[in-house]
């Protein structure tokens, strides 16, 4: 399948409520059912500790893989707990979950480490936060650029 030595990555979504499971469902809707991601929300898992233990189990099953843990909020209890996992090699935690970022992470080519892609992915996710109202949309009309070449 993949050459030896190539880092495979596992995307893990962790959140308050059921945001993680909802985010996974949105990812599947956009990228198709083959998308690989694990989702852990506190509605189901109750304690950040339980999520951490579950992720540790997954780590034992796939010690070679890079674990990318995408959390809902920096400073939140889930994220704080997940950051503790960073003491292990091949684990990284990203806060500020949103769909653009989750798509970017889910579509990372095999063999690429998250640290190599993060600048690009974060920029894209930040660009995805915008404000629209009638004045803004009215202004957009003026923007020309409607050609193929």
């Amino acid at each position: 399948m993949f050459e030896k030595g190539i880092v495979m990555s596992k995307l893990i979504l962790a959140s308050h409520g059921s945001l993680a499971e909802g985010m996974k469902s949105a990812l599947k809707m956009i990228l198709g059912d083959t998308v690989q991601a694990e989702a852990f929300g506190l509605d189901k898992w109750e304690q950040p500790q339980a999520i951490m233990e579950q992720i540790q189990k997954l780590r034992e099953e796939a010690p070679e893989e890079e674990f990318i843990i995408l959390c809902d909020m920096k400073g939140g209890s889930v994220c704080n707990r997940m950051v503790e996992l960073c003491s292990e090699p091949n684990v990284c935690v990203i806060s500020g979950m949103n769909l653009t970022l989750a798509i970017g992470l889910a579509m990372m080519p095999p063999g690429v480490k998250c640290s190599e892609m993060k600048a690009e992915l974060f920029e894209e996710a930040r660009d995805g936060i915008e404000y629209f109202d009638s004045a803004v949309v009215g202004g957009l009309k003026e923007e020309e650029e409607d050609d193929l070449w």
């Binding site: 894209e124 629209f132 957009l140 923007e143 650029e145 409607d146 050609d147 193929l148 070449w149």
Partner: peptide, 11 residues
């Protein structure tokens, strides 16, 4: 136009 991926042209 908003749905256009960055770096691409759209007509």
């Amino acid at each position: 136009k908003m749905a256009k991926p960055s770096g691409m042209k759209l007509a």
